[in-house]
Design a protein around this nucleic acid. Structure first.
Length: 414
RNA sequence: GGUCCCGUCGUCCAGAGGCCUAGGACGCCGGCCUUUCAAGCCGGAAACGCCGGUUCGAAUCCGGUCGGGACUGCCA
């Protein structure tokens, strides 16, 4: 959806055979056993209780939990396979984003690479894949920064050269909690379904942790691709701000070509209506679409703004009615509107406007007092697209019906 | 508890010793425009966590401190 393409992998193929880890289970297991043979790893069949005890002891002594979980004196021949951490100096590497990093061997666990059921852990599978697929740069979340020394050690044990790492800052929700597929996740598809544009989503995501310069907020994919560099990525975590995303989406909607916008909104209107638009209705819609385009942030809003043109609304918006239609003089305004609309000739935005603009003068009241009741009568709400255009698009007969309906409604209430 | 990462407006991003009385964006507040809602335009409030040090000069370098976060499993 976002137009992010990969060069090789599942569904795309490539020179490295299957890219599906489930197809390679035996291979990972073979490599794990090979690491035992070469002395980099060992079998461990100690019980969970035994390991817990070692962890507790380490914690009580102010050491990290894995401190005492090391290669047992007596060699085992079954159980999980662990990598034993070599005690020959710190593991150092330069992260593209964070700079030089160093981890002491004592702080790195003897970690499991093959479970007792023969299934590899993430550490093994992903490291082996990176090596065998000849991955040069690993860009991933900062949450696995602590695992990176393990992956480097594994890579060296596999007699390969480690890739360049870049650990990106995490994304937080507005609640300040980490955003991930396991916690507080909102699927990307939900944003698409909510009416966000892929280009806006792409731009917003890009701005989280990076900017082309100090001034620019809106930029397209080409510019991002041309100017983005991992070393420029921010080191601090970013909070996902739905308001800014919505604003940005509005910016993209407004910059769309009118006809593209109309085409995109059509299915939304039709689903709102529960039926397809006929040719005449489509023309009507296209005539008002630019007006709607200016005032929508999310695509579905465009649909709700415009349905009154095609189907009669069931009820008036209660708040609008109370605010506008319960005032004195509304009945006269509706009558005047009826009269004016009947007399419009020929029918156009300009003639409708001229006819209605004459009303406030004639009745000696303000423009707002005239147009708001008409708006509620015609559209069902005090919030709508511009009035004259709306009436022109609605047509004379339907406008007259709506005005009569509002008068009747008013009579009922008094 | 331990290891590591991070610390500029409420939020996102600029700022890589003097150009900073700290800039842009969202949001917020006020105004203009206006028949509504938007959009647009103008203006405003709003931050270098704190303490030391280096330096003629620090948001930028160093140390400490405080605060936030991640990790700490036969999860990934």
């Amino acid at each position: 959806w976002l137009g992010l393409e990969w060069d090789e992998g599942v569904g795309k193929g490539g020179p490295h055979g299957s890219y599906r880890q489930s197809d390679r289970l035996d291979h990972y297991a073979d490599l794990a056993r090979g690491l035992v043979d070469s002395g980099h790893a060992y079998y461990d069949d100690r019980s969970a209780a035994e390991l817990d005890e070692l962890r507790n002891r380490a914690q009580q002594e102010g050491k990290h939990p894995g401190h005492y979980i090391r290669r047992p004196d007596v060699e085992r021949t079954e159980g999980v396979i662990r990598v034993s951490i070599p005690n020959d100096g710190p593991v150092e590497f330069t992260d593209l984003i964070r700079g030089h990093l160093s981890f002491a061997p004592a702080d790195i666990d003897d970690f499991v690479i093959l479970r007792s059921n023969g299934v590899p852990t993430y550490h093994l599978a992903s490291t082996v894949d990176d090596v065998e697929y000849e991955v040069t740069h690993v860009a991933r979340g900062e949450d696995i920064l602590p695992s990176t020394p393990k992956h480097i050690l594994l890579t060296r044990a596999l007699e390969a050269t480690e890739p360049v790492y870049a650990h990106l800052p995490l994304l937080f929700g507005t609640d300040g909690k980490k955003l991930s597929k396991r916690h507080g996740a909102t699927a990307l598809s939900e944003y698409r379904d909510a009416g966000f544009l892929a280009d806006a989503m792409f731009n917003y995501l890009a701005i989280l942790g990076w900017a082309p310069d100090g001034e620019t907020t809106i930029f397209d994919r080409d510019r991002a691709v041309a100017e983005f560099d991992l070393v420029d990525v921010s080191r601090n975590p970013a909070a996902f701000d739905p308001d800014k995303l919505a604003w940005m989406n509005g910016e993209y909607i407004r910059s769309m070509d009118e006809s593209v916008f109309a085409d995109m909104v059509r299915p939304i209107v039709e689903s709102e209506l529960g039926r397809p638009l006929d040719a005449g209705e489509w023309d009507t819609f296209r005539s008002v679409a630019p007006l709607v385009q200016e005032r929508t942030k999310l695509l579905p809003e465009a649909g709700t703004q415009v349905v009154f043109l095609f189907d009669d609304f069931d009820t008036y918006d209660a708040e609008s009615w109370d605010k506008v239609m319960t005032k004195d003089g509304v009945a006269q305004v509706l009558d005047a509107g009826l009269e004016a609309v009947e007399a419009v000739d020929p029918w156009s935005v300009e003639t409708v406007e001229a006819a209605l603009r004459a009303i406030p003068e004639r009745l000696g009241i303000g423009a707002g007092k005239t147009f708001q009741p008409l708006r509620v009568a015609v559209t069902g709400s005090s919030v709508s697209p511009p009035l004259f255009e709306s009436i022109a698009a609605l047509g004379r007969e339907r406008t007259l019906e709506r005005l009569r309906r509002a008068s009747a409604e008013l009579a009922t209430q008094s």
